[in-house]
Design a binder for these strands. Structure first.
Lengths: 141, 141
DNA sequence: TCAAATTACTTGCAAAATGCAATCGATCTT
DNA sequence: AAGATCGATTGCATTTTGCAAGTAATTTGA
């Protein structure tokens, strides 16, 4: 993972090189807000990701240190994906994207609710949810 | 042209459908932080965007209501691009991406300075820069 | 004044990424 | 033993990207 062949060292660019595509942040979203942890669950998202793209993105996110993959101890068939600390740190970005879209795009009112609630709860809400994610994803691994 | 053929009405998804690629937010970055307004300036970015991709992204961003394009009154050859209100509202997202990358990626220290300064200045700094952009891009067009 | 430079793009083409459907071997359920 | 379920992989068509070259209109410089 020591291959520094980035287009530039600009912070904005480096972020985009890791999660700047149409699918990666949706996977993160599903983990954070829908509690998804398994391949089949991600595959069933509203947006309809293809199985090969999903496999590719999960591998990339693991490579980037945003997710980890572990075998489910109970089910040998099941892999369980967890957020890392750096994955959990993406929440403020998601919250900000949500805010922008709720201001400027024709969002589904039902799907906008969690974001609205978070904004209504004040600036501590994001940090609170990050703490909860840390307990869930880092507490046990 | 009211074709709402989005993958879903989820706020995160809708944002990604507009600016979820490797180039769009870099153009916005160059407008916000480097004061670029002309095609040739965008073309000269560190990351090396191709001219056809740049033309495509500028057109998309104009379509999405994030930028406007106007003929330069002084130079008939020059087009001048401006941010709209909804384009300026992307600044908090950029600031958040910058923050994530400065925590988790090998950013160029020199390029990280403006972000660090913004964070050091406190939460009002983003709003202040947005106000400045509004004066520059919306004040006159 | 007129050739050279500059402007915002467009074009052609190869390479890479994406999307879709079918399939895989391993494991789990019944 | 049979079928369902798991996380993928494969083959193939379509779309997007990247690169180099070219375009027409305008502006600059000698």
């Amino acid at each position: 993972m020591s291959n520094d062949s980035f287009r530039s060292g600009c912070p904005i660019n480096l972020g985009l090189e890791v999660f700047g595509d149409k699918w990666s942040l949706l996977i993160i979203r599903d983990m954070m807000f829908a509690g998804k942890r398994h391949y089949r669950e991600f595959l069933a998202s509203d947006e309809g990701i293809s199985s090969n793209i999903l496999a590719d993105r999960l591998a990339r996110l693991v490579d980037a240190g945003i997710l980890t993959r572990a075998d489910d101890p109970a089910h040998k068939l099941k892999a369980i994906y967890s957020l890392t600390a750096r994955g959990i740190d993406l929440l403020p970005i998601l919250a900000q994207i949500s805010r922008w879209s709720r201001s400027h795009m024709p969002v589904d009112p039902e799907l906008a609710r969690t974001g609205e609630a978070r904004d209504r709860a004040g600036p501590g809400a994001v940090e609170a949810q990050m703490a909860a994610l840390r307990r869930l994803h880092l507490g046990e691994g």
